[in-house]
Every structure is written in structure tokens, then in C-alpha cells.
Computed example of a mutant assay.
Amino acid sequence: MKIYEICFSPTGGTKKVSSLLTSTLEGETVLVDLTSNQADFHNIALTKEDVAVISVPSYAGRVPAVAAERLAMIDGHGARAVLVCVYGNRAYEDTLVELQDVAKQAGFCVTAAVAAIAEHSIARQFAAGRPDTQDAQQLSEFAKQIQTKLSAEDTEEPTIPGNRPYKNAGGVGMIPKPTRECTQCGICAKECPVQAIDKDNPKKVDDKACISCMRCVSVCPHKARRVNPVMLSAAGLALKKVCSDRKECELFI
């Protein structure tokens, strides 16, 4: 049995949560990086003996469209799946039910699900340092429960909260732009999940293609990309009330 860690994680928070689960499950781990703009996901096929941990961030209460499109290319072939949505301490809304639908359409059998918290990818003062030690312990214990269910070949599907039809997808949010420190090294263009940054001129951004995932900000070695500070400050004030109180992981099995 192989454990496929299928993950869309532009800034690393979702990957941290995903790895906390996969490291506890029994089996050889195979990473499938949905963030890659180069991979051919049509070539990935699982078997019924395999297990997939499918992890995505919640973008305004929905699965990122590009992550859903890439997951749909994979042949689940009856493999059991643990669904994970990660959010920045605001709300995950319809992310898990949408991920459930996409996974099932791709041929996966859903066996468990998690809504977990990681540092907000834009307003990084919220959920800073998460997943933390408390989260890690909770997720590790839940992974043991999942392993027990897998070993018992229990195929019961958990009840997952959310709405169908899903909430309307949000529009393009804040778009990172280069600062004067930009050396045009091209790393941001290479790593952009949707190729919104011009490879020949990294200072040029396709605003319509950008999904505000903040990967370019995360990977820039010169810290030379950022969003408009006025907009960032306004977003922080808007989120303060709903993001300040600690939310805990929600577990479904």
C-alpha cells in the first residue's frame, strides 16, 4: 500500500498539515504536488490498495479552481481518501464538501476528512505559528484513528458539513507586485502555480490569471514581492473580529 500525499500548498501551510497526517499513516509516501505548473496529472493512477491524503487550502470558502482541475485529472481507481482543507482561522465554509465531490468524481472513496488551521497566507498575523504543537498532537491521534479504520476495511463515508450548491467563488483578491529589490531572478515565475508571472519579465503580472495564492511572495529569495500595504492593512482590520479567537481542527470519520 502506498500513501499518496496529493497537495496544493502555495505557501507551505497546507503541506505542513498534510505531512502531519501522512507521517503517521502506514505505507510508502508518494508526493503529488498539485501546485506544480509543469506536472502532467493525467499520468497519475492509484489502485484500490492505495490511500490518498488530498489537501487543499480554503480560498474564500471554496477549493481553489486550479487545484480542483488538477485533482480531477488523477485516476483514483477506488483508492481510499482522507480529505484535508486548511484555512487561516476564518472559516472553511463549502471547501470540504466541494473537495469531497471532486475526489469522488475522480474515483476516490472518501474515508475521513479534516478541517485544520494554518497561518493565514495573506494576513499572516492570524493563526501565526499554526499548525502548532497542540494541532500536531491532535492530528497525529486522528491519523491513528484513520489507520484503524483503514485496517478494518471500513468503507463508511463520513458526514461532511457544507452546502450544495456551493457558495459563489470569490473574485481575484490582492495581487502581489515586485518591489525595487526585485532582481528578475525568475524564481517567482517558475514557481507560480498558474503561470501568471512573465518568465521573460518577472515584473509583469497577468492580473486576470493571478489567484492571490501568495506563492511568489513565499518563494522570493530577496523578499521583493508584496501586496499593496494599504489593502493589506484594510484586510487585516476586516478579518480581525472573525480571525482573532483560536479555532480548533474539525475531524470527520
Rank of each mutant, 00 (worst) to 15 (best):
Q105H: 09
V227P: 01
K190L: 13
R90Y: 11
K240E: 15
K241R: 14
R246W: 02
E181I: 01
A103Y: 12
A123D: 04
V82L: 14
R70I: 00
A127L: 04
Q145R: 12
E156P: 00
L83T: 08
Q125T: 06
F252T: 07
Y87L: 04
E248A: 11
A196W: 01
R62K: 11
G173F: 03
P193Y: 06
K208F: 08
Y166W: 11
G76W: 08
K223A: 13
V194T: 15
S233H: 14
C220S: 04
R80Q: 13
E250M: 12
T35Y: 01
G162T: 05
D154M: 09
G61E: 05
D207W: 00
K167Y: 12
G171V: 00
L25P: 02
I253G: 00
F142Y: 15
G61C: 09
A106W: 10
F108E: 02
A234H: 11
M1V: 07
A67P: 07
L71I: 12
S233Q: 15
E69W: 03
E49K: 13
A65S: 12
F108W: 03
E69L: 06
K48N: 08
A238Y: 08
D33S: 01
P193I: 10
G13N: 12
D94Q: 06
F8R: 07
Q147A: 11
N168T: 14
E157G: 04
A234G: 04
F126P: 02
R215P: 04
A128K: 15
N37H: 08
S23A: 13
D206R: 09
T133N: 08
D132N: 15
G236A: 01
T111C: 15
F126N: 01
L21K: 03
V227G: 00
P158V: 11
K149R: 14
A118W: 02
A112K: 06
C182K: 14
A189Q: 08
V110W: 03
K240V: 02
K48Q: 13
Y92Q: 07
A65N: 09
A196G: 01
Q184S: 14
T155P: 00
M231L: 15
A91T: 00
G61V: 05
V102Q: 08
D132G: 15
C220T: 04
A72C: 01
